Simulated assay, not measured.
Amino acid sequence: MGRIVISENVTLDGVVEDPTGEEGFRHGGWFLRLGDKDRAAWAELELTEARATEALLLGRRSDEWFAARWPARRGAWADRLNGLPKYVVSTTARAPEWSNATGCEGKVLNGDPVEEVPALREELDGDIVVYASIRLAQTLLEHGLVDELRLTVFPFVLGAGRRLFDGTSLSDPLRLVSTRTVGDDLALLTYRPAHGSRRRRS
């Protein structure tokens, strides 16, 4: 059985919106404020995570964003991400946009993610990682379909912007299972459901 893992970059006050400054958010581009040492440490963290990932689960917009940037990139991290199977939650797409020349497996999940994602978890083994895809991540959190939550916390306070937990209500507590300093100023916080792997509530 697979594990659904949400892996997100967040500011100290929980904002996930527009880290690269390409969406027009007035506080966008906060990721780009990292110093070289922290950026290198973050990239190493991401490579380690990618090597332990079996598939990616994405929303349609995030799939399109990655597809426009990552296939042309080179290096161990890019090669690993480009080669992973991608599963995209969408009611309009016919196939994942982000694929590669080797024809990696993957498909579009056209149905309700609350029904489709548990089936995907039963089908696959290993970590199924959600990058970006905030709307999808919020749906999975709201319905108790997340096995692990990894938050890389950036030392910036924006005071405004879309937050990961906006509009969600988590009645089940999360348990902090590990903390790690990344570079000089980043922190990786890993949480799991306090009562084990959560399933959809009836």
Rank of each mutant, 00 (worst) to 15 (best):
D38S: 12
S7R: 13
I134D: 00
L81G: 02
W77N: 00
T92K: 03
S197F: 07
S197R: 15
H143N: 15
E142M: 05
V153S: 08
A40N: 06
R198I: 00
L124E: 09
V130H: 11
L56V: 13
A50N: 06
T168W: 07
H195M: 01
D36F: 08
D38F: 00
R201D: 10
D185H: 14
D13S: 15
L120F: 09
E116F: 00
R175D: 08
H195W: 06
S202D: 12
W42S: 09
N100Q: 01
F25H: 11
G59H: 10
S7D: 15
A67D: 05
D18C: 08
A41S: 09
R26C: 10
D13H: 12
T11G: 07
L188N: 12
V108L: 06
T181P: 08
G106M: 05
V10N: 00
W70A: 06
V114T: 13
A160C: 01
A52Y: 01
Y87I: 04
L136R: 02
A95T: 10
H143A: 01
V5F: 02
R163L: 03
D36P: 13
V114R: 14
E17T: 07
S171G: 15
V5W: 03
R80F: 08
G161C: 09
A78G: 05
L189F: 10
R51Y: 00
G35W: 05
R199S: 12
G24F: 06
E105S: 14
V89A: 05
L45T: 11
F154S: 09
S178K: 13
S197D: 03
T53Q: 01
T53L: 04
A95H: 13
P71H: 03
L174V: 13
P85C: 06
E105Y: 00
W42K: 08
V16R: 14
L174N: 14
V130P: 10
R33M: 05
S133T: 08
A137S: 15
D112N: 15
T48R: 15
A160Y: 00
E49G: 14
G103Y: 09
A50M: 10
R33T: 09
D79T: 01
L188F: 02
A68H: 09
K86E: 01
D172C: 07
R150P: 11
R73S: 05
L47T: 09
L189G: 11
R121Y: 05
L12R: 11
R73M: 07
A187H: 13
W65N: 14
R201K: 14
L174Y: 15
T92G: 06
S178P: 12
L136H: 07
G159S: 09
G28S: 10
L149M: 05
L140P: 13
V108Q: 00
L140W: 08
V88I: 04
L186F: 09
R39K: 14
L174D: 01
R60A: 15
D147M: 00
G21W: 07
F31Y: 15
L158S: 11
R135Y: 05
P71C: 03
G103L: 02
V89I: 07
V15A: 02
F31W: 04
